[in-house]
Structure formats: structure tokens, C-alpha cells
Deep mutational scan, measured.
Amino acid sequence: STHNELEKNRRAHLRLCLERLKVLIPLGPDCTRHTTLGLLNKAKAHIKKLE
């Protein structure tokens, strides 16, 4: 159905954006896999440090 396709595309776009963010944020050497929340929290902390 159309709704399923739209949802699939939305999730794919979100995944792509999170992958791009992961490249930009210093995550530390001990981190190989992150939850979305963990990645967003690290991004928030990094932005605050830059301010």
C-alpha cells in the first residue's frame, strides 16, 4: 500500500541522516554501535561544547 511505501521511505531517510550524523560526531574509540538516542545525545553534547 502507499502508506507502507511512505513509511519505508521515511525510515530509510532517517537511517541515512543518522549515518551522516555518526560521521560528523566524535564518538570515541570504544564505540562501535550506537542507539539512536545515544547518538543524538552525543551530538547534543558536541554542539554544546562548540558553543
Rank of each mutant, 00 (worst) to 15 (best):
G28N: 14
A12L: 02
T36Y: 06
L37S: 12
L27K: 15
L21W: 03
K22L: 02
A12Y: 00
R11A: 03
G28D: 13
A45S: 07
E7V: 08
K48A: 02
V23C: 15
C17M: 13
L50H: 07
L6R: 14
P29F: 15
T35I: 10
R15S: 08
H3E: 11
P29E: 06
L27G: 14
H3Q: 11
E7R: 09
H34I: 08
T32C: 14
K49N: 03
N41F: 02
H13V: 06
L50C: 07
P26F: 03
L18W: 14
C31R: 14
G28M: 12
K8F: 08
A43Q: 01
T36H: 09
L18M: 05
L24V: 08
K49H: 00
A43M: 12
N41R: 11
R11T: 06
C31E: 08
I47R: 01
P26T: 15
E19G: 06
L27F: 11
A12N: 08
K42G: 05
T35Y: 15
L50D: 05
L27N: 15
R33D: 02
G28Y: 13
K8R: 06
E5W: 05
L6M: 07
R20I: 00
E5V: 06
H3K: 14
L39I: 10
R15P: 08
T2P: 06
L24M: 06
H46S: 14
K49M: 02
L18S: 04
R15M: 04
C17R: 01
L40G: 02
R11F: 05
L21K: 01
G28A: 07
I25T: 03
L24W: 14
A43D: 02
L24Y: 08
E7C: 07
K22A: 00
S1C: 08
L21C: 04
H34F: 14
L21Q: 04
D30R: 14
A12T: 13
L27M: 11
C31M: 10
K42S: 06
K49V: 03
A43F: 09
T2M: 02
K48G: 04
C31I: 13
T36E: 04
L24I: 13
H34Y: 05
H13N: 13
P29G: 10
E5Q: 08
S1W: 00
T35P: 10
A12W: 08
K22T: 01
H46C: 10
I47N: 02
L14N: 01
L37A: 11
S1I: 02
C31H: 15
K22S: 04
R15Y: 00
H34E: 07
N41V: 02
E7K: 12
C31A: 13
D30S: 15
